[in-house]
């Protein structure tokens, strides 16, 4: 049953482009699937080897893993690491900080990427379009350490260009980098600066596939610019937006580690601590791989539930899910 509903839902979205399918007999279908399955073989082997086989090692979440003793030789501790994690007095704070940062990324950074892609798409001068596109994607290639030290430079008290600017506007001498109220805005700002341009690439690829005749027809029908964007451009990237949204909900607990770790300090740590930095401190820095794996497992379960849930929701609203 599930497959049937799924097939209907999926074909619903692309029904416009699908021809009514002829009923093929079993033999023909078999022949067809053989080829398809053959094409998939390398991919399936890849997933078995490099994605599923290592999961055998994830059992260290239930052990006190000591590398020298090997996975099976390490003592079994059951749910101990999970208990430690969930009963940790900092847990509510970590969850809150993580969710706030995830929400900011989802509701600010993600829409900005779409807006940016649309604005770029509206540029008529091709050379300008290409130049701007290339410029905005440059920051993606600077590592977080470089981005954070550049931020330090720009907000340096006394002579940082942005510090001077904000200082003149607000008339206070705040150390923006240490002020807890400024932590989240700065994180979002860095994220937007570094990744927006890069994120537009995928939408621009989708927009490249849009049938130009549609625009011409719309213009002839007297559609204004905004109407064209609303009725042609946006629908053509809708499925990409939905897929990206679904995939992002699965990553909601993964705020990334490096940027936040580098931006946090003694004065803003109450708002800066997230699961990923916590795992780094406890798991990696202290060398407790079992604990880090247990937290990863707990996060993954939440991620799986969220992805499958939003995917189900998307289909409920007759959109094309991811599968």
């Amino acid at each position: 049953m599930a497959t049937l509903i799924e097939a209907q839902a999926a074909s619903g979205a692309s029904a416009a482009t699908l021809r009514p399918q002829n009923r093929r007999n079993v033999r023909e279908t078999l022949a067809r699937y053989r080829w398809l399955l053959f094409l998939m073989l390398p991919g399936i082997i890849y997933f078995l080897l490099f994605r599923f086989w290592p999961m055998y090692g994830a059992q260290i979440a239930f052990r006190d893993y000591i590398p020298f003793l090997g996975i099976e030789g390490s003592p079994w501790v059951g749910w101990e690491h999970f208990e430690t994690f969930f009963t940790n007095p900092d847990f509510p704070r970590l969850l809150r900080n993580t969710l706030i940062l995830a929400a900011l990324s989802l509701f600010i950074a993600f829409p900005l990427t779409i807006v940016m892609a649309l604005l770029l798409n509206e540029l008529r001068l091709n050379i300008l379009k290409r130049t701007v596109q290339t410029l905005v994607y440059v920051p993606h290639f600077l590592s977080w350490t470089v981005v954070v030290s550049l931020t330090g430079l720009l907000f340096a008290i006394g002579n940082g260009p942005l510090w001077t600017l904000l200082n003149d506007v607000m008339g206070t001498e705040t150390n923006f980098l240490a002020d807890p109220a400024w932590f989240r805005p700065l994180i979002v700002l860095q994220d937007v600066w570094k990744n927006t341009g890069w994120g537009t690439i995928i939408f621009l690829a989708a927009l490249a596939g849009v049938d130009q005749e549609q625009y011409e027809a719309a213009i002839i029908d007297g559609a204004g610019r905004w109407q064209r964007v609303w009725h042609i451009t946006l629908p053509s990237i809708r499925s990409t937006i939905i897929v990206l949204l679904i995939l992002q909900t699965g990553q909601i607990l993964n705020t990334g580690f490096e940027q936040i770790y580098l931006m946090s300090n003694a004065l803003n740590r109450t708002v800066a601590d997230v699961f990923d930095t916590y795992v780094y401190f406890v798991g990696i820095q202290q060398g407790s791989y079992s604990y880090a794996t247990a937290v990863g497992l707990a996060k993954a379960i939440v991620g799986v539930i969220l992805i499958f849930g939003t995917n189900w929701l998307a289909k409920r609203f007759n959109q094309q899910g991811i599968f």
Binding site: A10, Y33, M40, F50, P54, I60, A300, F323
Partner: peptide, 29 residues
């Protein structure tokens, strides 16, 4: 969309995206 087992494979693929076994298990493989 009519490929048999497609949904199962996609679910597993999505699962690997959210959960990776970690550094050391992958290293051992």
């Amino acid at each position: 969309i009519d490929l048999p087992g497609r949904r199962t494979i996609m679910s597993l693929v999505v699962f690997t995206m959210v959960f990776s076994a970690g550094l050391i298990p992958t290293f051992l493989v």
